[in-house]
Structures are given as C-alpha cells and as structure tokens.
Amino acid sequence: MSQAPDLPLWAALLVSLLVVAGAGVAFLGSLGLVRLRSFYSRVHAPSLGATLGAGCILIASMICFSVLRSRPMVHELLISLFVTITTPVTLMLLARAALYRDHAEGRTNVPPLPKRRPEGAGPGEGTT
C-alpha cells in the first residue's frame, strides 16, 4: 500500500491493532445508527465511536508520533478531553429536543416532560 511511516516492528503492530480496533468500533456505532429502529435507541450509537473508537485511534496516534519524533507527543490528549466533554452535551441536547418535539406533537409513547416553570425556568429545570 502507499507510503506509511517506518516505525519499529513492535510500534507498528501496536499502532495497527489500535487503529483497526478503533475504526471497527466507530463503524459498529455508525452501523447502529442504521440498524436500530427507534430514535431514542439510535442516540446511543454514536457514543461508541466517540468513546472507545476515538480513544483507540488517539492512543495509536500518540504512540505513532512519539516513536516517529522520538519525544513524547501527547497533544492528542486535548482532542480526547474535548470529545469526552462535548459528546454528552450534544447527545443530551438532541434527546431533550426530540422529547420536546414528540410532546409538542402529542405522541403518547414517551415519558412526560416535567412542568416548565412559568418564567425563565430558573437554574433548576435544565440539566447541566
């Protein structure tokens, strides 16, 4: 296959394993997006790729560049920190929006939303 960096054998094997595993997990998560039937089940699917999938590939990238430059390169930590904090926020907001829309349309197979406070909702009603 086309060019790839020349790492020592142990590092190449480790990086290969992690990259393929991470991509496989991300693929499984996206497959869930197609296969699961209800929206609320599908919301779970992307978190596969965002946790284990991203973790494996980021660790592989750290090992790859650290060996390549022969000094610790850990700036991938930033992405992992960022992804861990942002994925829950997007998924929670999306689930709440979906619940809200289902209620607005009068669907009955979803749990009731808590009563909104009359003005400004206050800090309590929202999640974090």
């Binding site: 296959m1 060019q3 790492l7 094997l13 990086v15 290969s16 990259v19 991509a23």
Partner: peptide, 18 residues
C-alpha cells in the same frame, strides 16, 4: 513494518469510510 502499518491504516480508513 511500514507495510503492516500501511495495510492496517488502509483497512481502518475503509472502515471509517463505511
């Protein structure tokens, strides 16, 4: 080792593309 890494990167890219 470059060969192994190259092929597994291709496989990973294929999976991510899917």
């Amino acid at each position: 080792s470059a060969l192994i890494l190259g092929w597994s990167l291709t496989l990973a890219q294929l999976l991510l593309g899917l």
